[in-house]
Write a protein that binds this DNA or RNA. Sequence first.
DNA 1: GATCTAATGTTATGTTATAACATATCTTTA
DNA 2: TAAAGATATGTTATAACATAACATTAGATC
Lengths: 165, 165
Amino acid sequence: MTDRLQESSKNALSFACKRNHALCIEEALEHAKRVCERAGERFTDLRKQVFAIVWAEHKPVKAYDLLSELSSIRKGVAPATVYRALDFLKSQGLVHKLESLNAYLGCSQPETEHHGHFLICECCEEVRELAFAPFSQSIDEIEKAQKFQIKHTTIELLGRCIKCQ
Amino acid sequence: MTDRLQESSKNALSFACKRNHALCIEEALEHAKRVCERAGERFTDLRKQVFAIVWAEHKPVKAYDLLSELSSIRKGVAPATVYRALDFLKSQGLVHKLESLNAYLGCSQPETEHHGHFLICECCEEVRELAFAPFSQSIDEIEKAQKFQIKHTTIELLGRCIKCQ
DNA sequence: GATCTAATGTTATGTTATAACATATCTTTA
DNA sequence: TAAAGATATGTTATAACATAACATTAGATC
């Protein structure tokens, strides 16, 4: 077993955020483009700009903040413009909505399967998407036991990160 | 092992909702009153009325729907009136907010420890609070592994209930 | 390049939630 | 029991979040 594997095993529950946000914006845009192509969708200028703004912030972004940032690089921007782009990016899994914050976050794990499970620090507002999916099994159990067919999960854990304790 | 226990074991993942909603409103109000007394808080008329309306619906209630219902039995009702009462009831664990719906639900398990984990049917809009807490262990693991101190969880699973499949 | 479809622009409005300050009610205690 | 302090509610205004509806533009297809 290599060091790398050992480390990854030790950190089975570690966040992907840090590593993935090392991805530069160019790589992220490249990836987003590929995702859209694969889906037969267009990665238009608007979508690209919105994606870039959300991605650039490593914190959740409010729709109206996005709107005002977007306005500085583009004209004719109204709420609908932003919400449509966000809806599209969500549909492609490139952006997540944090329901408990009414805010949007660039997906931190573009290349790997991801689950949309978040840790939100109430203090520094940093949000991390869990790389590991500790809830998957529980979710499977619930589906079987309840005969409830789960289509979307909203899992957001609010608390204090290690730096803020 | 009694039949009752066997049944409860078989249904370890079963919902509490149905059983608990058999609680009549009077019992629920009684319980809410006790909760407030224990906390040294006042269960005022306003709070009682808001609680009763939320409880009466077995579905999630929107704040502004609540507002209009409340207006029919009370005057001088404004949004702040409703939101303040809801905040209070949430703080006592008597009502939950469903973040993904922007709606409020009376707690279905007033007498037992509960976790605020929900199954939401996208079709019939029925919402069930999980009696069982399949996520508790995962949450403990995350806290340890990440040294992230969790204070509040938002766990809402959207899908189709057995009736709507 | 005509036609169709998807995306965006534009205007208006709907929905959800809070701020700020005035008034009323409850509790405590002199 | 009246005064003082604390808590709750009334009231007005506005902030924050999101979508509807229809016009226009840009891309894709033939």
